[in-house]
């Protein structure tokens, strides 16, 4: 599949997500007059479009983040969720709920974002040392993820029912934002990992061949690795703060992209974010329309992601053997 085709697929998916829903938009009404027009303008421009834009930004960011981690750490299981960035943001969110209660948006974003950075700091320092092998960085991330969930469990023990409920709702992930302010806030942090991936594409190619080759080709491994960790932490921190954790996209999409486009990062760094955007829009669309109530986006990505990942593993293993 050529990249322009993928770009068109993003546009088509976005258009359909905006126009279709429990109520199918009447295009004629949009250009007419009267109450129906007002109604549809509100549904499309205030409710559905911001949501679809959010899905595009976050889907692209998660896919690029997963690709960056998998390529720089040389491990197919690396994702924003195995490296603690996401867990740190969750802890920050919990503390904000606990201390300020739900509703104080800016404090909430600040805490989630700040703790994402803070919790990732030891991993960042580890990744910035060249002689630390990639497995060590990955395992440190897993350990930190476990550590933060332990702290969250401990806080749950002392938290009020209201806080626990608010946190539980948030942790399911939610793309329903009203208006465009949040999209503006997210624009730069989510595009950072996407742009970084593209700029680092040649270095990622060399790093995919292992440490020895990367050094032989002159790649400053520690710099590329810690740079990736920094932009991903910023992107994931901001998105988790606003929309809650959304799992699986970062893990699966790079594998799908590699299955279609092979291992070259010149194409992967463009294809992965586009595929991520499409997949998250589809998950969101399914979540809005399968049942009469909305299914949270985190539940949808996990529900669709798990079988998709297993299917991918089975077919790739089959091909590797055949």
């Amino acid at each position: 599949m050529k990249i322009p085709l993928l770009l068109m697929l993003v546009a088509v998916t976005a258009a359909l997500s905006v126009l279709l829903g429990r109520d199918v938009a009447d295009l004629g009404a949009l250009f007419g007059q009267g109450d129906a027009v007002e109604y549809w303008r509100y549904i499309i421009f205030e409710l559905r479009l911001p949501r679809v834009l959010m899905a595009i930004l976050i889907g692209a960011m998660l896919a690029s983040s997963g690709l960056l981690f998998q390529s720089t750490l040389h491990n197919p299981l690396a994702s924003p969720f195995t490296l603690g960035s996401s867990a740190g943001a969750a802890l920050g969110a919990y503390i904000a709920f606990l201390v300020f209660g739900p509703g104080s948006q800016w404090l909430f974003i600040g805490f989630a974002f700040g703790l994402a950075l803070l919790v990732s700091l030891p991993i960042y320092l580890l990744a910035a040392r060249r002689r630390v092998p990639p497995e060590a960085v990955l395992l440190a991330g897993v350990a930190i993820t476990f550590g933060t969930s332990a702290v969250i469990s401990g806080l749950t023990y002392v938290a009020s029912e209201k806080t626990i409920f608010a946190y539980a709702r948030w942790s399911l992930g939610d793309l329903s934002v009203i208006g465009y302010d949040n999209i503006l806030i997210l624009l730069v942090p989510t595009l950072l990992p996407v742009i970084y991936g593209w700029l680092a594409r040649h270095r990622l190619d060399a790093m995919a061949g292992g440490e020895e080759l990367a050094l032989a080709r002159g790649v400053n491994i520690a710099a590329v690795r810690s740079g990736a960790l920094l932009v991903v932490t910023i992107g994931v921190g901001a998105s988790v703060a606003l929309c809650g954790p959304i799992a699986f996209i970062g893990l699966i999409v790079p594998h799908v992209a590699r299955a279609i486009y092979g291992g070259g990062h010149s194409r992967l760094t463009i294809a992965a974010p586009l595929l991520g955007a499409i997949l998250l829009m589809l998950c969101d669309f399914a979540g809005r329309n399968i049942l009469t109530v909305d299914i949270p986006i985190g539940v949808m990505t996990a529900a669709l992601g798990t079988p998709a990942f297993i299917a991918l593993l089975v077919t790739r293993l089959g091909r590797a053997r055949g």
């Binding site: 060399a206 990367a214 032989a216 080709r217 002159g218 092979g262």
Partner: peptide
């Protein structure tokens, strides 16, 4: 790398890559 070009025993390769792109990728890292 600016002084010594090192070739490890086994060079990992992307199977679908063309030979030209593979050689080009050696320069890409810098």
């Amino acid at each position: 790398r600016d002084f010594l070009a090192y070739q490890p025993q086994a060079l990992p390769r992307v199977e679908a890559q063309t030979v030209e792109d593979f050689v080009l990728s050696a320069r890409g890292a810098r």
